[in-house]
Nucleic acid binder design. Structure first.
Lengths: 243, 243
DNA sequence: CGTCAAATTGACAAGGCTCAAGTGCCGTGG
DNA sequence: CCACGGCACTTGAGCCTTGTCAATTTGACG
């Protein structure tokens, strides 16, 4: 189960060293965390609202999202996640899940017992700071999403979401933002922006006509990064990425 | 400046003991934090986006909000705060502000040097857990706001926001949720829900006609708590209040 | 009593939703 | 190798919720 010799922990180590200064000791502690690895098909639910959580889930490859469901059954995605992201670190100190976590594509995930993680946090202050900082960045992104969904037009919302997603992929080491092909369906984009899939489709056509994105159907990418950034009012300070 | 003898620290102590088990030692450390107290008029900006932050602001009385501004100048409020709330704990580990903080009413606030707070966190693990937990609850509320603004009708949004606000006031010791008179103007409600003030006015009239709220003009309160809860789909689990 | 911010109301416009039909793509099974 | 089924994408027509603009009223306070 434990695995000091393989590279399973690498995405996590990469992520956390980007968040703070980890000592060799910290990294050793990270690498000795017990891990249960799983391959999941697209659309698999990992965390379900109201569940009691005892394991922390780390995304090793693929994409995932967190979402909540309204009274009428409609879904609101509250964040997307890429390789290296910790999907439910909030359960370090909150027992009960307040939202669902689901894979968007096929994905490899690693489960770490929350107790083991709590133990590492207690004995490694700089690890605690890195993880705490990760929580704070998460919260900052949620704030930007409230603005995005609350005060931007449909086209701006979608453009902003795409800019953020591309930049986070780039910073996770998945390649240049301008080369990324978007992995989610128009349904996912709709649920993330508070729109309907039909309207997302129309907006994407519009963005394509403006030359801001390119590529047909479900395989498109950002064609004019600077134009998109300006159109979407994307100011990435809120991602708090290392300079 | 320091003030072991006065009750200035009490709202903070109240808040944090609700978040975790603090030892006498922790509370002593809290009470010996240096504090600079100020009275602020309604509408005063406390934190401004992009600023570098060196002090933490605690709300002692009155109400405050955090907000972001879109390209076109429109404003999105991302959270409201009540007495006892820590307004910018995120700057414990994020240097730069990604949003503004502003008083909604006249308010008393206390500024604590961020360094002093970091020192307390380092030497008092249970304090760290309580503050970390506070950050996690904050984030959970932001997620709910994304759902609120993204997937609920205007009336449901407003009703939900009012339910949350009332319940948080109650849990902060400001009196029963059903007795609270709402302190913000229709402009604030609009900016918090992603609507216009005109439409908020129309919706409030509607809610009044339904008997869900009562009271004229700027002084109204929830008249039918159970009805509001049901109408707004308000399930307070996401507030992670102590049982 | 004047002033100013907030609330209120009406008429009209528009952005985004709903419903419905049709297309393209890909994996599966015969 | 082809037919089939399913899912995602695409497009159109009409409607509805909410926004815009503008005028008026109300209430608090000096």
């Amino acid at each position: 189960m434990s695995s000091k010799l393989t590279g399973q922990h690498d995405p996590l180590v990469r992520k956390l060293t980007g968040l703070g200064n980890l000592t060799d000791d910290d990294i050793g502690a990270l690498r000795s965390l017990p891990i249960r690895e799983r391959h999941l098909r697209a659309g698999t639910l990992i965390v379900i609202e109201d569940q009691l959580i005892s394991e922390c889930c780390l995304l090793l490859s693929g994409y995932a999202c967190r979402h909540k469901v309204a009274k009428d059954g409609s879904r609101q995605i509250v964040s997307f996640h890429v390789a290296g992201d910790i999907l439910d670190i909030q359960h370090l100190f909150l027992e009960q899940a307040d939202h669902n976590v689901q894979t968007v594509t096929d994905a490899d995930v690693a489960f770490i017992p929350m107790n083991a993680l709590r133990a590492v946090v207690e004995s490694n202050p700089s690890m605690a700071v890195a993880l705490w900082r990760d929580c704070l960045v998460d919260a900052s992104i949620f704030r930007e999403w409230v603005l995005n969904v609350g005060r931007r037009s449909a086209a701006e919302r979608i453009a902003h979401m795409l800019c953020e997603f591309a930049m986070r992929c780039e910073s996770a080491g998945l390649g240049a933002a301008s080369e990324l092909t978007v992995p989610m369906t128009q349904d996912y984009i709709a649920d993330a922006t508070g729109l309907t899939a039909v309207h997302v489709n129309r907006v994407l056509r519009h963005l394509r006509e403006q030359g801001l994105i390119e590529g047909a159907g479900r395989a498109f990418k950002i064609a004019d990064w600077e134009g998109m950034r300006r159109f979407a009012d994307f100011r990435p300070g809120y991602l708090h990425l290392a300079a």
